[in-house]
Amino acid sequence: MINRIVVGAHYGLKDWIAQRATAVIMAVYSVLMAAVLLIVRPSTFEAWQGVFANGVIKFLTFLFFVSLFYHAWIGIRDIWMDYVKPTGLRLTLHVVTIAALVGYTAWAAAILWRL
């Protein structure tokens, strides 16, 4: 490939919005969960299981994790973009990051719905 600095990928806005939207979801979830836990005050393993047995809580928790991983994807991708200059290596790291985060998502689902 010729050695020329290329910009103009024409994306970024969606990610930028997504990063903010996911942050809002995480914030709302944190407040909501804090309230639930304050009301229920689970003190045993069974009580904790009880809280997460609720379908709505399950869904919200899963949404939280999806938001967290998507948020993390943009942040970590930006770090690779800043510090890793060789395109091939950077692409590899992107793929590894995506694989890990998708894996985490599946793992989160498994934990939540195995309960």
């Binding site: 910009v7 103009g8 990928a9 970024g12 806005l13």
Partner: peptide, 10 residues
């Protein structure tokens, strides 16, 4: 011209 992960969103 600015919608780009580098040009603006850095």
């Amino acid at each position: 011209n600015l919608e780009d992960p580098y040009r603006l969103f850095r």
